[in-house]
Design a binder for these strands. Structure first.
Length: 545
RNA sequence: GGCUCAAUAGCUCAGUCGGUAGAGUAGGGGACUCAUAAGCCCUUGGUCGUCAGUUCAAGUCUGACUUGAGCCA
């Protein structure tokens, strides 16, 4: 079993710096929703969080795409960046830093870092001959290519013969150190299946890799030889460090690393695991820096069971999707409907079934029915009941008191699906509890004290569910809290957007950490007006209907 | 070609140390009425990818195969 990332006062998490050769797709959205959720979770636990996202903007592919579109590469990048930013806004992603590899301060970081690696003697000049795929930005082995010399990854593109004098990074030197790292930190690469892949790959033996390109103008000049530019991957990984730099701090590697290094978590797609789990730690070792705590590689999507590809024409446009359905149902589906780390499928019917069942029928109805009863039977106030007087055997109290720990552990392990399942189980148990105890009957029998306990337990469970879902569903959780009479905006928790949160709860501080427990609602506090927290989504019409 | 992972109910998945299968959801039925025709209870669905082997006993272990996903700079 994997250990959770150690509890600590600060938490730094990154998405990849996305390559701007094309507009954002569903995979970008997925990674970023997960990173945002984990960042929100840590903010909710009062940690000082930095979520870094951004874009990787150099390289020949970008250069050529821009030229083909008849624009300056920087103009092209700016346009794509605007699309990413638009999507993050629509998905309610609260990033702290947007790191662009074309930013001025990034050049300084790269230069400083290069200097360190240079001084450790890990960069040398050599010749690289071979077939190069511009789309992959990689050299390909002859044996991996078909006769017509098309790249296996990009069947429409032919590879190009290159004979270059390049600078190389001495990756081969770090094989043993890398293997020691993997052995000593089994959680460095997750999930385990990905870790195995990396172990196998490294065990085969590591070859030095080229970190410079000639004839690519769109890049950062190599300090040791300005006629060459730095290979995009070397450049892009360092963008994480640039992201650490305080906006008003002077750009330097030392300043960037002063506060938060090493990064706690890199969330990536499985396609770029090698760069993060092999190249990146080796580069850091060479520079004499410590290694990030964890690299988590998530899976890929199919659409209705089929591989997503442009030639199939079945790409999912995340902007269109969020415009159609809204951010929170999508956030919920992608994190609850798919095991994080495994491949998943996007199917519209399943998506709608899951969000309707969980958010409208189960949790939504729980909130609504309970509040309506409190309105009718308890004058619209939190039922007059002290949680300490509720029996320790009460099923909701029993569940609720251990749920916080359980869900914390799940979030810390990036087990979003498990977190949601545990929370929804509490909602289900609450619905069952209400049916079993029938508050409407208690009311008719004039059993006020018992009625108050039952409704209190149900309301409090709904509150806890909302709190624990807040990293995934900040708007819905805020709405539930408001209806429960708690003024608390989960979009304004922690990070750089700290606002003093006014809790309508007695003896509470601005600290909401204790909301992880059960028994927070205070007897006789005024409740809000009940209204559905989630309107069911409509099933799409079947094509042949 | 080498390697890794997966295949269990219509769908998404659990299944521990081998003891002939579970959840959620969807489908069917029932009692209820506080509620978003929601919720609750009951229930129909499975030759556990195929074929062998080990074993008193295999979803589980072994081998081969099939299909899918991925890695092989």
């Amino acid at each position: 079993m994997n250990n959770p990332i150690k509890t600590q006062a600060s938490f730094t998490v990154t998405t990849p710096l996305y390559y701007v050769n094309d507009v954002p797709h569903i995979g970008h959205a997925y990674t970023t929703m997960a990173a945002d959720t984990i960042a929100r979770w840590h903010r909710l636990q009062q940690r000082n969080v930095l979520l870094i996202t951004g874009t990787d903007e150099h390289g020949q592919k970008i250069e050529r795409t821009a030229i083909a579109a008849g624009v300056d590469p920087q103009v092209h990048c700016d346009r794509i960046v605007a699309k990413f930013d638009l999507l993050w806004g629509k998905l309610n992603i609260k990033y702290d830093r947007f790191s662009r590899t074309t930013a001025a301060n990034h050049q300084v970081i790269v230069k400083d870092f290069f200097q360190r690696v240079w001084e450790s003697g890990d960069i040398y000049q050599g010749t690289q001959q071979g077939w190069y795929c511009v789309s992959c930005e990689e050299f390909k082995e002859e044996r991996d290519l078909p006769e017509d010399k098309h790249c296996p990854m990009h069947p429409s593109k032919q590879v190009e013969w290159r004979d270059e004098s390049n600078y190389f990074f001495r990756l081969s030197k770090y094989q043993q150190q890398l293997e020691a790292l993997y052995a000593e930190h089994p959680d460095f690469i997750l999930p385990n299946s990905r870790r195995n892949e990396v172990l196998k790959f490294v065990a085969q033996g590591l070859q030095d890799f080229s970190i410079s390109r000639v004839n690519v103008d769109w890049g950062i000049p190599l300090p040791a030889d300005p006629k060459q530019t730095i290979y995009v991957w070397f450049d892009a990984l360092l963008g994480y460090m640039t992201g650490l730099l305080d906006p008003d701090a002077e750009a330097s590697l030392d300043n960037a690393l002063a506060q938060r290094w090493p990064i706690n978590l890199h969330i990536i797609g499985k396609d770029i695991l090698r760069f993060h789990a092999v190249y990146w730690p080796a580069m850091l070792m060479s520079a004499g820096l410590s290694i990030p705590d964890r690299v988590f590689a998530h899976g890929y999507f199919t659409k209705d069971g089929k591989k997503i590809s442009k030639s199939e024409g079945n790409a999912i446009d995340p902007i269109e999707l969020v415009d159609r359905y809204g951010a929170e149902p999508l956030r919920y589906y992608f994190l609850k409907g798919i095991e994080f780390g495994q491949d998943g499928d996007f199917n519209e019917t399943r998506f709608i079934e899951i969000v309707n069942a969980d958010l409208a029928n189960n949790l939504g109805n729980l909130v609504n029915r309970t509040l309506n009863m409190a309105k009718k039977y308890c004058q619209g106030r939190v039922p007059n009941c002290n949680p300490e007087d509720i029996s320790p055997d009460n099923p909701l109290k029993l569940l609720g008191e251990k749920l916080g720990t359980q869900v914390s552990l799940a979030y810390d392990n990036l087990a979003f699906k498990e977190a949601c399942e545990s929370i929804i189980t509490l909602a289900h148990s609450s619905n069952k509890y209400i049916d079993d105890l029938a508050p409407w009957a208690l009311f008719k029998q004039d059993k006020q004290a018992e009625l108050a306990q039952v409704l209190y337990a149900a309301l409090e469970s709904a509150r806890l569910a909302a709190y624990l879902l807040a990293p995934i569903l900040p708007k819905i959780s805020t709405n539930i809290y408001r209806q429960l009479g708690l003024e608390f905006d989960f979009d304004l928790v922690g990070g750089n957007n700290v606002t003093t949160v006014d809790m309508n709860v007695s003896n509470s501080s601005t600290n909401c950490e204790h909301h992880l427990g059960w028994g927070i609602l205070k007897a006789n506090d005024l409740l809000g007006e009940p209204s559905p927290i989630f309107t069911k989504l409509e099933l799409p019409l079947v094509a042949n209907n």
